[in-house]
Design a protein around this nucleic acid. Structure first.
Lengths: 225, 225
DNA sequence: GGCCGTCCTCACGAGATCGTCACGATGCCC
DNA sequence: GGGCATCGTGACGATCTCGTGAGGACGGCC
């Protein structure tokens, strides 16, 4: 059934979680540090990650960031903190849910089900083509026809991913800014233009005459397959 | 941008939520009973539903059930109860997230973003046909029979959208001008004619003999499917 | 400390959109 | 048929938006 990665430095909790999940039919991998978690994620694919924020080595937020660099695996955050700013930060970084300790096992299981249910409807096609370029969202690679690699920065990936997720669909500048920044207010739309320009320069054969990363004046941008 | 339905019988909270969401650029519909919520959902498509469990007429759980009969619109549940069995029940019925009152506005907004981000990959193509043209309001695309795309400006889309929302129904010039400009007074009705002409030129096979974008002299315009 | 990559802002020319004017066409009423 | 109101269309500057280059701020790494 589903493969779940549990990350927590509290061994008793780790054990309890694992036992409950295994009893429910999940395949469980455990990690008690951020480093171990990241190597696990890099090695195997998971259907969901349950992540405690208070890790001894790496900040849990950095783990979220790193996982989101790779892909879109659902992340449920556990935390002893109940402050709303922590929640907002984690969710904005790409976490799917946030559960405050202490929590009931039933609730966590229900949230896990809700999250994976939603994620399973997402198509898993992770590669796309922009002209001659081959793009692999999962591996985060862009390959030219001659085999050479093109390097994209995290922000560029984020932008490209949002556009590629909805092929042919218009994405408003507001949506893009919200994805990149968290809030569209008081953010200069020219910010977007710089990154679109950089993406085009790296992906389009003729950056000044884009054929796939299309501008819709006054509205936003569109990825044309 | 995103259309959100808020359901709560506490009017002060309803208002506060609506104001915050509108300020963030969401299009908001309010409902203070389960019945009104269900008619709203049946009538218009939404990108997310924020639902209080404690409603005067129908149980919130039944609302979740009914909405899930229809489709997969993301649902965020609000509740004064903190018991885990309530959460489990709501989530199992198909809710995407559960927030206990009291909550911070920032947290709700973050969870709303996380939920719609996850759900946005699922297609909700709502397309209409004008003659041979295929129109997708969500993707903002107009496709000709041969596959070629037609480009529409923001104002043209706005006008077309208002007409398409009420198929066959007459829409007065006053309504159209209010939609496009904000105020119908002191605005030349000839303004409308220019954009209707442009729309017809782009959508109708014979712009001078329109078959779908019909003029009703002295009253307004009508979209004939 | 120095280097490097990334993020983000500012400023300016180019291009698209908007909104108005003018003029001809159409249909209705007397 | 004449007069009048309403509508359709072409053209043109004002305005807004977009693309691009240059450059400072910040943080990680050697």
């Amino acid at each position: 059934m589903s493969r779940v990665l549990i990350v927590d430095d509290e061994h008793s909790l780790l054990r309890a979680l694992a036992m409950n999940l295994v009893a429910r039919g999940y395949t469980v991998t455990e990690a008690d540090t951020g480093t171990k978690a990241l190597t696990a994620v890099a090695g195997d694919p998971y259907d969901a990650i349950v992540l405690d924020l208070g890790l001894p080595d790496i900040s849990g937020l950095d783990v979220i960031r790193a996982v989101r660099e790779f892909g879109t695996t659902p992340i449920i955050v556990l935390s002893a903190r109940t402050g709303s700013s922590d929640k907002v930060q984690a969710l904005n970084l790409g976490a799917d849910d946030y559960v405050s300790k202490p929590f009931s096992m039933e609730e966590l299981l229900a949230r896990l089900r809700a999250t994976t249910r939603r994620a399973s409807t997402v198509d898993t096609a992770q590669t796309a083509a922009v002209g001659q370029m081959q793009i692999d969202l999962a591996a985060k690679t862009v390959t030219q026809p001659d085999g050479a690699r093109v390097h994209l920065t995290p922000t560029e990936w984020h932008l490209l991913e949002v556009l590629l997720r909805q092929p042919g669909k218009l994405v408003t500048s507001r949506t893009l800014l919200t994805e990149l920044r968290g809030a569209p207010e008081h953010t200069d739309p020219s910010y977007l233009r710089i990154y679109m320009a950089q993406l085009r320069r790296k992906l389009e054969p003729e950056p000044s005459r884009p054929r796939h990363l299309i501008t819709e004046p006054g509205m936003g941008y569109r990825f044309q397959p």
